[in-house]
Structure formats: C-alpha cells, structure tokens
Nucleic acid binder design. Structure first.
Length: 511
RNA sequence: UCCUCGAUAGCUCAAUGGUAGAGCGGCCCGCUGUUAACGGGCAGGUUGUAGGUUCGAGUCCUACUCGAGGAGCCA
C-alpha cells in the first residue's frame, strides 16, 4: 500500500467511519495529547493526537518496528507537533472507536519538539482556569478551550446565517468614533498626540466650565507641573477633535436601518469601565440588529427566535463539545438549552416584575439586600431571583421607567404622568442575568428633543441622528446581544474571560 | 472603584512563630493492546515584591503588585 501518498485528513474525518472506513490509508497532522507505552510485541506506543478539528483525539498505534521508534516516538511528550502515516483500524476492545495503526510501511515524523517537557505549561492533567488565563497562547490546546473556540465559531456563523436567511444586511459600523454622544460609559481615547511631550492646551476662556474646574482641581495638587494645566487642545489631533473607541454601533446602524429595513452589526465594542467581574470585558463583541416598521413586540419576537435558533444550531453542530460541557463544566448545559428551545419566553412588564418582588418581600419568602421600589432600577439580585428562582426560565422584562433608561428609547403612550415608561426590554436568563438589552427607538422628533433636553444632552451633537427623524422617520427597534455572554450561557463557563481568546480587562492585556 | 479571600515545587495544595511536605506532572526502571493506566525510584524551592516586629517569620504587622468571588456599571 502506498502510504507515503496517503491523503492528509483532519482528525474529525479520520474518526468518521463514513469518510474513513477501516483500511483507509491516511496522513494525520496535529499535536500530541498523551503517550502510553507497552512492552508487548517488542514495543508499542499509543499516541493520542489532536488537531482541533473536533473534540476527540485519534489514537495512533505505533509499533516498535518503525526505524525512529526508540530515537523519537518513545520520547514524544504532550504538545509535540507530529505527522503520521498509517491505516485506519478497528480498536480491538474499543467498540466503535478506531485507531490509526503505524507499523511497517507507516511512518511518524516529528515536526516540532517540546523543548522541556517538565516545564511545558500545558501538562496532561487538570489545570485551573486562572492558571490557564496566564497561558492564553497555549490554553487552546486543552479540551475546554478547544471546545469553547469551536462553539464560539459555530455561534458566530449561526448568527450571520440567522440574519442572512431573514433578509438582514450585515453593516460594518465604525470602531473609531468622534461622536461624544454614544451614551454613558467610560470610553477609550484614540489619539496621535505625543503623550511624552506636554500636550497642547486651549486658551483658558475657551474651556468649558466643567473642564476648567477639573483642570484647576488637578493643578491644585502639589506634584502637578504647571504645563499640565488647562484643557487639552485636540484641533491638532488626527481627527481634529477628541475620538474614542466605540461603545455601541447602534446609532450608526439606525441610519442604515432607515434605508435597508433590516440590518445588523456584529463587531468589537469597548468599555473603559474599571469593571472586575466574571461578566465584563473591556473589549467584547456585540450583535446589534435594527428593524424598521417594527415595535417592541416585534423586537422581542426577533430576539427570542434568534436565541432559540442559536441554541438549536449549537446543539446539532457541536454535539461533541456540548457533551463535554455537560459532563465536565455545567451538568445542565445541554438539557437547559433543549428546555429553553421548547418553551415560549415569558413576557412581563417592569411594573409587573416589581409587583412580584414586592409580594415575595411582603410575604417574607425572600430577603434582598437592596430595596425594591417602582422607579428604581432592578439590582442583579432582583433580576436573578425572577429568572432563576421565581420563573426558572428566560424572562423578557419590558416597559421600564424612563428615568433609568437611555434617551433614544421610545416613550410609551398613555402612561400616568408620574409613571412614564419607555419601550425598553431586557432579556434575563438564569446564571447570566441580562443577556440582551433592547428597545423601540423614539421616532418622533419632538419627543426625542424633549428627552435630550431632560437629560441635559447637547442637541447639536446629535444632528445626524435627529435628521433620521426629520426625513422619512418610521417606528423601529433593535437590541444588543453580548456575544461572550451568549457563549457563557451556552457552555456554562463561569468567567467571561474564558470564552474570548485574549481577554481585555483592567490590568490584563498581556497577549 | 468598594467589600471579602488568596499568592509556598512545573501545576493543585499542606506546614502551633522553631530543620519547607504531599498528590499530580516530569525523568529513570519494572509491568501492561494501552486509553484518568499501574508498581518502584529520582530530580525539583531566595515561600508575590519592599519594609518592619522577633533570638528566630511561609506563619505576626504595614505598604504595594497580581489573582479569585461578590457589588456597582452594563452586554
């Protein structure tokens, strides 16, 4: 058999009896997971090799008659990159499992050795996620992170497919923004000014009152050199004004929605908040669809259909990885997704949610650290109670008080004067809390302007956003889905830093 | 940023203020068509950093750095 010309097959195809029946000559390339030796039959080694194409590794059965058996095969350790040529065989005891047998005529070639097996960071034993986070360049070689990477890919593809099949257009909204109007949240500055030299300062009389006060406070500190005084002049900066990394593509994607009807963005988003939690990143990916001629109910329906589509896809396409997550990470991972797909999401207004919380508190069934009162935002503990304990399923909370929501959310019609609400929704899921936040947008210019004024925002800064309401405005709605939170929910991974290849968080940008 | 806890061998963790240990991993030997392999042996340490208390500090005190869980902010 001309094994030297055997086709290179990925492990996923090598272990698939339909594609590689017993007797098929194959070439396998990948990285060694484990090696076990036997002295039987004059030397025999079992080498598990993985190439990331699926969860499972394929076992090479390497016989002692290979010319480099003693010199190389017997010295293989975890992490070595190798190429092997052999024939698919049935495992004697292994049920449906197959191996690739390498004996006379077969070959094994070491492509890359591990220079010191004792200090190779990924040892064939359980490692803590905290430790692996410090080895982010190597951690994808483990079962868990390989599985996360494949699920992440599967979900990303499924998101594009879901929207594409429904006539949505994928819009690339900008990463850099010079709008100072994307809403609350600390932003990262983008600048070409030379921070090693004194930065240019604007004239004192040209400074805003807020900036002047801030600078005076700074200059009052004893160690402050005088040239640091005053507001920075960005007219000489790359964009001629202050620029930042985007915190949301929503405002931009609304413009495309007002011409293409159904659009979505899927891209990186940045928050400079000093958040140190298992649910926050400084750089994360967000999916933001926007639909025209639509209201909040349409928005909620879209979000529910999307989540169910994604869960069904990952269960069928990544059954191998989901089996692993259910066995080793979160016992209910697969069952929970199946359960969610079958039942309609519960819809509940904020007002009804508050009522339920007040009732359980009054009956003494549940104690919370923070008080519940109509008009104040729900705390994590309240949201978690509703979705995890009270309903035990995903909940869509809608129609929040306007004072706790963003300016662009549509004011509900027919509210009591002291209980005005907006057409906002949060989708809460067990274990994660808020996974989606969305709203119907305010399409009426007079109402939008009134909100801008109420929130002391500068109308001029929003000139192009307001233009959308002046030229052919329509009801429209959209939401934001945190991609990493979605992956957390699907896999059961506890920390968001373990579902993105190279997490960015305060004091964390090593890789 | 706030609260709580933590940092000791390659990894996970022990060690009353008094000579730093174990398991796993690594290497060597034995056994075995093995698959979380098994049995025996060997190597491996400036106890996160900088100070302080003490005859003596892994242990007590102070500051800092980094990490974890929770909170806030949110996706």
């Amino acid at each position: 058999m001309a094994q030297n010309s055997a086709a290179w097959v990925r492990v996923v195809d090598a272990i698939d009896a339909g594609k590689s029946p017993v007797g098929t000559p194959v070439t396998i390339k990948g990285w060694v997971r484990t090696r076990r030796d036997s002295k039987a039959e004059g030397g025999l080694s079992f080498v598990a090799i993985n190439d990331g194409s699926c969860f499972d590794s394929v076992q090479l059965v390497v016989k002692g008659d290979l010319p480099n058996y003693a010199s190389e095969v017997a010295k293989l350790s975890s992490g070595c990159a190798i190429e092997a040529q052999g024939v698919i065989v049935q495992n004697p005891k292994g049920g449906n499992e197959v191996s690739v047998e390498l004996s006379t005529g077969g070959a094994i070639r070491v492509i890359g050795w591990v220079e010191n097996p004792d200090t190779y960071p990924i040892q064939p034993k359980p490692h803590s996620f905290e430790y692996l986070r410090e080895q982010a360049h190597l951690r994808v070689r483990t079962n868990t992170f390989g599985a996360v990477a494949r699920v992440r890919h599967c979900l990303a593809m499924a998101i594009h497919r879901f929207f594409h099949e429904r006539g949505f257009y994928y819009v690339h909204t900008p990463i850099i923004t010079a709008n100072d109007c994307e809403g609350a949240g600390q932003m990262f500055r983008v600048s070409t000014l030379d921070s090693m030299r004194p930065l240019p300062r604007v004239a004192k009389e040209a400074q805003s009152e807020e900036a002047r006060k801030h600078c005076e406070d700074l200059a009052a500190k004893p160690a402050m050199p005088p040239w640091t005084y005053g507001q920075v002049d960005h007219t000489g900066d790359f964009f001629g004004k202050e620029a930042h990394l985007t915190v949301s593509g929503q405002l931009n994607v609304e413009t495309y929605c007002m011409a293409m009807s159904r659009v979505y963005t899927f891209g990186p988003t940045f928050r400079a908040e000093n958040s140190n939690t298992s649910r926050h990143l400084a750089e994360f990916w967000m999916i933001e669809p926007e639909i025209a001629f639509a209201d909040l109910a349409d928005d909620a329906k879209l979000a529910e259909e999307m989540l169910k589509y994604l869960f069904a896809t990952v269960l069928s396409e990544r059954a191998d990885d989901m089996k692993f997550f259910s066995e080793r990470i979160e016992k209910t991972a697969s069952e929970r997704l199946k359960h969610i797909i079958e039942k309609p999401f519960l819809r509940l207004t904020y007002t009804e949610g508050v009522k339920i919380l007040e009732e359980v508190i009054a009956k003494g069934q549940k104690k919370f650290e923070y008080p519940v009162k109509w008009g104040i935002d729900l705390q994590s503990e309240h949201e978690r109670f509703l979705t995890e304990e009270h309903f035990k399923q995903p909940v869509i909370l809608t129609n929040y008080p306007k004072q706790i929501k963003a300016f662009y959310m549509r004011l509900d019609d027919g509210c009591e004067p002291d209980r005005q609400t907006v057409s906002a929704m949060d989708i809460l899921v067990p274990g994660i809390g808020e996974i989606i936040g969305g709203s119907q947008r305010e399409e009426r210019l007079d109402k939008l302007d009134a909100r801008l004024e109420e929130m002391k925002l500068n109308k001029a800064d929003y000139w192009w956003y307001r233009d959308l309401r002046r030229y052919g405005t329509t009801p429209h709605a959209g939401f934001g889905l945190g991609f990493e939170r979605l992956i957390q929910f699907v896999t059961g991974m506890q920390n968001i830093r373990d579902v993105i290849p190279f997490p960015r968080a305060p004091k964390q940008a090593e890789f």
